[in-house]
Design a binder for these strands. Structure first.
Lengths: 225, 225
DNA sequence: ATCCGTAAATTCATCAGATGACTTGATGAT
DNA sequence: ATCATCAAGTCATCTGATGAATTTACGGAT
């Protein structure tokens, strides 16, 4: 059951060697790397192991294998580990990062929201209810849906994508560590956010989200010390 | 040369099938999935193909293969594609997201910076010079180093990680699409950021970064329309 | 009955060989 | 010069076999 953390296998070693060569600039983007047989000799492992190693790097977006042609370098920057490190960065850091996106999203939503966006946000706000309606789990889902609609209204897909990531990551962290004893968000504060966005004033919208986030951030700051 | 976008191979199909089963909750976290021989029959592909498919999911963090024991579900949420989608979200969206992180980082830096942080930021600001010193490439590097030092001073590793990602992603995009005709940042604006952080006023620091970012954001907004 | 060491079974890791599918460049006929 | 055809190169896939690590089953000692 107990496993040493750094025991590795040939496939991972081979993939790591290849990755280091790619990131080190041994081949340029678009260039073809040695074929499987040559890699077998270079890495001193069997062809099957080479293929598994290459497969890993293809899935990371570093390589591109084309049947009949060869395997080519697609990118020399590896961003695959970034989100893993974000996940391990602590709850306070994650919440702060999400808050930053949330504030900016509200700012952009004030400038760009469509009538449809406003209708959806209002509807989700009204449907949000209280924690007593249908249990904690269901309330959390409704709360998340409401906040997500704000980010959607920003029209920024990058922010929305990261917001979804943080929502999932934070939920995972809270489930595994805390027992959900964070301050409950104020209901009137939610309405204030929608109202601010509706007026089209970005600074007011940003301030509304920021003041809404403040209690949780303060609590997390306290917990992290 | 022309390649249909959805031509796939057995390994990717098998990996996708497995991924769908995992995300669909067929097995719970910690549960052991069928062994390679069984997967060979379930997926109707050879063991080698099964192994490559499993490798992909292991590298994505969904599975955990243990020699002699079995292959277990590590996570049922897949965040591996999030950054890829962010990369494809357009330059304006990426820049806005990074700006959001940058502003929040300055705010946090004002509250948390150490004397060492301040020293480093000042040093990098002075070393930044102009675009005429050592060429455009070198100047870009110094500029990035300065901005990164602000994010470092925030003490938030999640924001720093994402900031690095955006820096690389934006650089890649600019290289491949634009020809670097974005507004040059003002030098005095940089000094204003450091000064604001040094006073410890988070709102002033945030405002300094925001006004510094404004010209580029406006230009990108114009380009995106 | 419990504990513990050994053997057996299970499972993933790795290697080797062979065949097929696809791409690319060369060849040759028109 | 153009185009169809062919040959070489390369990745994709299958099959079989052996090794290494883990787990389980078993049997003896206490």
């Amino acid at each position: 059951m107990m496993r040493p953390i750094n025991r590795t296998n040939l496939t991972d070693s081979a993939a790591e060697s290849l990755r280091a060569e790619i990131l080190g600039g041994r081949w340029t983007v678009g260039e073809r790397i040695p074929n499987e047989t040559a890699l077998t000799e270079l890495l001193a492992v069997s062809r099957g192991t080479v293929r598994e190693a290459v497969r890993i790097l293809v899935s990371k977006g570093l390589l591109d294998a084309r049947q009949g042609s060869g395997t080519y370098v697609r990118s020399t920057v590896d961003t695959s580990g970034a989100l893993d490190r974000v996940k391990r960065s602590g709850l306070r850091d994650q919440w702060e990062a999400r808050a930053a996106l949330d504030v900016e999203a509200a700012r952009l939503a004030a400038l760009r929201h469509t009538p449809l966006d406003l209708e959806r946000m209002t509807r989700l706000l009204n449907a949000r209810g209280t924690v007593h309606d249908g249990g904690r789990e269901a309330f959390g889902q409704r709360d998340i849906a409401f906040h997500r609609s704000i980010v959607e209204a920003s029209g920024n897909r990058a922010i929305l994508e990261l917001y979804d990531f943080f929502t999932a990551a934070i939920l995972e962290t809270i489930h595994s560590t805390l027992n959900g004893d964070l301050p409950e968000p104020d209901d009137r504060a939610h309405a204030a956010i929608v109202a601010a966005i509706a007026t089209g004033d970005p600074d007011r919208a940003a301030a509304a989200v920021r003041s809404f986030m403040a209690p949780v951030l303060d609590e997390l700051q306290r917990l992290s010390q």
